[in-house]
């Protein structure tokens, strides 16, 4: 019962420093944060504010230095590498600014990549799931194209399809429109909105106010500290 009532993400007094030859560079200070299942949150801040580092910690890609991070009530600092890999495989997925697709590899294979590491989805299901995810981002006619034959907007939609395929609880998007023109960017944001309305938790990291406005809640980070945490009122109509 206790598990169900715990928030999806709960952070208390989280602190993060990078160490380079024992030289400490603090990045995040005393972060306190709760994110419930199904939220659409934007983490906004200028470059160097620590917003990406926060997302990497939230997304199990990086470790925090002190403080606590509870995922569904479980302390992340006590999880070993394999458990973290399992969470990355099943519970979360990422959309990166640089797309991070495998070069010289077809759209179909790029989208299927996370399933290689998924412990429960059978190989026989892969193809069907991939086709569904590709259809969801409207790229069915590009399925057999190699990733380097696509435009930037198409690449990011492939990345979204790849994030969708495991049906994760949380989708992290790090500056997903950062490398795109405004039309492609709008398509990508539309796709993320749809993920949210379908019930996924979406955590968006951006420096851009207009992109952040798509979310239902904006957390502003400045110099490694939370400056504000407000619900969005002036959300543009869908």
């Amino acid at each position: 019962m206790e598990k169900k009532t715990a928030p999806l993400i709960e952070i208390k007094g989280l602190h993060k420093s990078y160490f380079n030859d024992e030289l400490e560079t603090p990045v995040l200070f005393d972060i306190n944060l709760k994110i419930e299942k199904g939220e659409f949150v934007a983490i906004r801040g200028p470059s160097g504010s620590g917003k990406s580092t926060l997302m990497h910690i939230l997304g199990f890609l990086d470790h925090h230095t002190s403080g606590s991070y509870l995922f569904e009530g479980q302390p992340v600092s006590r999880m070993d590498e394999d458990s973290l890999a399992k969470i990355r495989a099943q519970r979360v997925s990422f959309v990166f600014q640089a797309f991070n697709l495998l070069p010289r590899t077809s759209v179909l294979q790029n989208v299927q990549l996370p399933l290689l590491y998924h412990p429960t989805i059978a190989p026989s299901e892969r193809r069907e799931r991939a086709e569904k995810a590709i259809a969801a981002v409207g790229l069915t006619d590009r399925m057999y194209n190699l990733s380097n034959q696509l435009s930037g907007g198409q690449k990011q939609r492939v990345a979204i399809a790849r994030a969708l395929i495991t049906e994760p609880d949380v989708i992290f998007a790090d500056e997903p429109t950062g490398n795109l023109d405004s039309v492609s960017g709008a398509h990508v944001m539309e796709a993320l909105e749809k993920l949210h309305t379908d019930g996924h938790t979406v955590i968006l990291v951006t420096h851009d106010q207009r992109t952040a406005d798509h979310a239902r809640r904006t957390i502003e980070i400045y110099d490694g500290r939370i400056k504000s945490d407000t619900p969005n009122v002036k959300r543009p109509p869908l």
């Binding site: 890609l61 990355r88 495989a89 991070n100 990549l113």
Partner: peptide, 10 residues
């Protein structure tokens, strides 16, 4: 790095 982010274990 990408494979690890997608859930690959060591």
């Amino acid at each position: 790095g990408l494979r690890k982010a997608l859930g690959a274990r060591r």
